[in-house]
Design a protein around this nucleic acid. Structure first.
Lengths: 351, 351
DNA sequence: AACTAATAGTAAATCGCTTTACTTGAGCCT
DNA sequence: AGGCTCAAGTAAAGCGATTTACTATTAGTT
């Protein structure tokens, strides 16, 4: 199955124990300082003639010298590492934000630790501390209520509490709610059901408030019997499925459903279908987020799109700026991004 | 919107510049060594009487001492950090494996760096080196061809090449293919279309080989016109959509489709539907992986389940074992996990 | 010839911890 | 009184870099 090609040692001689600055300097008959200056293109290197510089770089290449990042971090008090705190590593929301974060971060030479707290209070408390012990230079919390009193610059993606030292990156929820409700309103819907998010979700309160405001502005009345709330920790569509059954059980009629997010909307559609209702013929459904699979549902999901990747990139970019400009203690308290309505096939005019 | 509760300073006095071992020792009037022994419960601490130990721990708590992990790692030559290399974060497959990895890792006190290479050859080459520079103690590559000559223990989830130093965690593909084909066979299907994975996907070759073997064993003939291959880097269902259109364009009739993975199966179903075919009434579709959203497709997807989370956990567990037992150079070359067939609503007897 | 300036570096401290080898004083024994 | 053991620590090296403050040699100037 696998052959050992005899002449295939095209890699460098794989220096068993990795070479250190010390061994490299000895090999060259120079001081560690000289080598360090040259390798880092430090201003001090100007006292080293070009010829010697070339020799140093050549030897470094040949011996495959790679400076130990730990040692450098310790000395410089700079780790080029940040921490990312998410509720859970899964397909939807967090994954998209993380991919945006990574995009910007790696490009700037930073690495990051990911930790997921799964809404456990002890982990929420402990992880930021552990991350700081590991000398991260900043923290990005995704959909996570961040504790006060952090020593390092922090960004909260979808954070809404005003915490000293924290930049919140938030969606314009007023607009998001209005886009969705206006769309339904224009299709003739008046009896609209709502699925609220769990208490622990950062966006739950603000989104619900925005919905109430938009509904009032449009003259849509919200029937309490048509409002349910997701229950449970998991991020599976099942949660949406469950509360939709509850909604159907109440007997109150509705022609549209606006769900807290796409994942729950997907579960909701399944429940509607099983109850004999067709989407969008009998009930229109609007989701929120526009996760990757939203476009490939059947019917394809109409949803309020959050620019999640963009939010991740902005988070990383802002964080690095704050780290680099440390000292200035002015920093943005809030950055607002705009939603868009993506109309697909899960909404239609009232029957 | 946000209130400042005046009496809310229930946290410790937030010691501005974090306390070091040195300052803690000075504060106590003891040597750094003594404090270190006690804090680490080192055997050396037996020479420190209980009373002093209590004093040390009390002071550490009060001053909120947190040892600098960088310094410790440097000294001990142990970073308690590993690297995880994935093609892309925002995808069903990798996300599930990562969540398994994290589960085991964090629990054992390890942290991890994630990097995604997006199939770029330069990154594939560079990232393992950068990770080693950052002193990771091991590497887990997910669905990624790992380079030879790594200095550290490595695990390849869905790796199939035999590389020295690497443990492959693989699915029993022979069984996976057989489960799916047998299922279709029993439903009466004989004209079956196939979507193969991209060349760069680790599982593509073995899975296709297994399919051919199973088909032969069952007496199913594979029509070349009914075999297409995913094209493109992205992990969106669109790729499956595209090749299914191609399949339909060929005009060759088929009653079932076995797709490389769930994501492409979802796109395929969309294409089938748009062509006027109904799933499963006219065409049965089987996916592979059982990603989270598979159960919530319409129709719910019949698929070969890979225990992805389990594979991640096993990867982490095996890696930590190999790290801990460093020295022994015996290690598992391959760990096989078993698939299961999850029958849902996308398959039915032939029309 | 003496002084200055530039060139080509080097020695050593430092980051914050761990860990080995040693010291100091007290108590006990003979 | 001298030696031995034990308790309770301490001093200092070392992990692998970076960085500040020097030094030794040569060349040029007056």
């Amino acid at each position: 199955m696998s052959r050992n090609k005899p002449g295939a040692t095209h890699r460098a001689p794989a220096s068993r124990s990795s070479v250190s600055l010390k061994s490299l300097a000895e090999h060259l008959g120079l001081s560690q300082a000289a080598v360090s200056f040259v390798m880092n293109r430090s201003p001090n290197a100007k006292s080293i003639p070009q010829h010697t510089q070339d020799l140093i770089r050549k030897a470094a290449r040949e011996l495959n010298y790679r400076p130990n990042h730990l040692a450098r971090s310790l000395r410089q008090q700079r780790s080029f590492t940040i921490g990312v705190l998410v509720p859970e590593i899964s397909e939807g929301y967090a994954a998209l934000v993380m991919s945006g974060i990574e995009d910007h971060l790696l490009q700037e030479g930073y690495f990051y630790f990911v930790v997921s707290h799964r809404h456990r209070a002890d982990l929420l408390e402990e992880y930021p501390l552990l991350l700081q012990q590991r000398a991260v230079e900043g923290l990005i919390a995704v959909d996570t209520a961040i504790a006060e009193g952090l020593q390092i610059p922090s960004i909260a993606v979808s954070g809404h509490r005003e915490v000293p030292g924290v930049t919140n990156i938030v969606l314009n929820h007023a607009r998001g709610a209005m886009l969705a409700l206006e769309h339904l309103y224009k299709l003739g819907h008046r009896r609209i059901a709502f699925i609220k998010g769990q208490e622990f979700s950062s966006d739950t309160a603000i989104r619900w408030q925005s919905i109430q405001d938009s509904a009032a502005a449009l003259g849509i009345e919200i029937d309490d019997r048509l409002v349910v709330q997701l229950k449970g920790e998991s991020s599976s569509p099942e949660l949406g499925y469950n509360v939709t059954q509850q909604l159907l059980g109440s007997g109150a009629p509705f022609t549209a459903l606006f769900s807290f997010n796409d994942v729950s909307a997907i579960g909701a559609i399944q429940a509607l279908r099983e109850s004999g209702r067709r989407v969008p013929d009998n009930v229109s459904v609007v989701g929120f987020d526009d996760i990757q699979s939203a476009a490939f549902q059947n019917p394809a999901l109409t949803t309020v799109r959050q620019p999640l990747r963009q939010m991740g990139m902005t988070a990383a970019e802002t964080l690095l700026q704050r780290i680099t400009n440390a000292g200035q203690d002015s920093y943005p308290k809030e950055i607002v991004v705009e939603p868009t309505l993506v109309v697909r096939a899960s909404t239609a005019p009232i029957p």
